[in-house]
């Protein structure tokens, strides 16, 4: 394998993981707010919750489109095997995201309280279902996909196992926690207090999920276990659980104090560490346990052409995304919404 053909998929794997991480974090708190609609019934609070994300959620969701498009262009072999493999949860997730997305507009413009209640429910159910499906897809992905000659060759329901359901529930929990800590940062008074309270409960649930998934994963495939215990991998792997514990400790401490953003950052830390752990586990497979990154990659000219654009455009995108967040910064309250 020549130099570029070897290194480019490596760089692209990094970019794809980055895009997925950004998506999971950014849309994670959007979806989390939808999940929290199940528990927060006060109309004023719901409006405030929505107002914290209304100007930015669309951009957040775009990272998911970027993830899909990048797989399509750079790892078409993964795109064309993984998507048919997770056909059912992907279709349901897309439907759920449609409900979630239009509910933003429709609940604001609803003409009657009943109509509005319906779209509130749609927003909650869509967010929860989308989060659950994303977790199932992740779990199904980690447990592996049956392929033959580079194409999906398994059954339509292969993805559905106790492990993938656990992952689904974990992601719902994690997004809800991202949502509550985001709201701790962006809201005040009663709602903030409630979110601090919820954050504590959810963080206990979340750490249990992380432990359960982490203990289960290495036993899904023999190589997974090997990745973690072989020397020198263990040197890279060992800090991950330690850092998870550290972030958890820090979050717990700051939830009781006046810290606004720290709990949110700690949850982001949890998500990033989980994703890093996942990457260590499945490396170097793009479609575990058969196809490596190099098996599924596009020809070099495709990867190169897209890389040029990505290197130039991603910083620009990051720039105006930050500007947008900056513009709508600060605590959102009932009175000062967007005046």
């Amino acid at each position: 394998m020549s130099g570029l053909a070897f290194y480019l998929p490596f760089i692209w794997a990094f970019i794809v993981i980055l895009a997925i991480s950004v998506y999971v974090i950014l849309d994670g708190f959007d979806l989390g707010i939808g999940i929290l609609f199940a528990f927060e019934k006060k109309p004023e609070h719901r409006d405030i919750m929505i107002n914290t994300i209304a100007p930015v959620w669309d951009g957040n969701e775009t990272w998911m489109v970027l993830g899909g498009a990048t797989l399509f262009g750079v790892f078409p072999g993964a795109y064309s095997t993984l998507l048919p493999a997770f056909y059912i949860p992907i279709i349901i997730m897309l439907g759920a995201l449609i409900f979630r997305g239009v509910a933003f507009e429709f609940r604001i413009m609803a003409h009657s309280p009943n109509h509005r209640a319906f779209w509130n429910t749609g927003f909650m159910a869509g967010s929860t279902l989308a989060a659950f499906c994303q977790g199932c897809i992740l779990g199904g992905y980690v447990q592996g996909v049956h392929t033959s000659h580079g194409a999906f060759a398994g059954g339509a329901m292969d993805w559905l196992t106790p492990f993938s359901v656990l992952c689904g529930l974990s992601v719902v929990t994690g997004y809800a926690l991202l949502g509550t800590t985001w709201l701790v940062w962006r809201t005040s008074d009663e709602l903030e207090a409630r979110c601090r309270h919820w954050s504590k409960k959810l963080s206990i649930l979340m750490i249990l999920c992380i432990i359960a998934v982490s203990c289960w994963t290495p036993f899904l495939h023999a190589p997974y276990l090997h990745h973690w215990i072989a020397f020198p991998n263990i040197l890279f792997g060992l800090p991950v659980p330690l850092l998870v514990a550290l972030a958890g400790f820090l979050m717990w401490r700051t939830l009781d104090k006046e810290h606004a953003i720290t709990p949110f950052l700690c949850v982001i830390g949890w998500f990033l560490l989980s994703l890093v752990g996942l990457a260590i586990t499945i490396w170097p497979y793009a479609v575990p346990p058969t196809l490596t990154l190099w098996d599924v990659a596009s020809p070099v000219p495709s990867q190169l052409f897209q890389l040029v654009g990505t290197v130039i455009l991603l910083p620009i995108i990051t720039g105006y995304s930050i500007y947008s967040y900056y513009l709508f910064r600060g605590k959102v309250t009932k009175t000062d919404g967007y005046h």
Binding site: F72, G73, P76
Partner: peptide, 14 residues
Amino acid sequence: GPITGVLLSYEVMT
């Protein structure tokens, strides 16, 4: 995908 997927990615990014 090596052609249309790349064009689609440019659409997303630009």
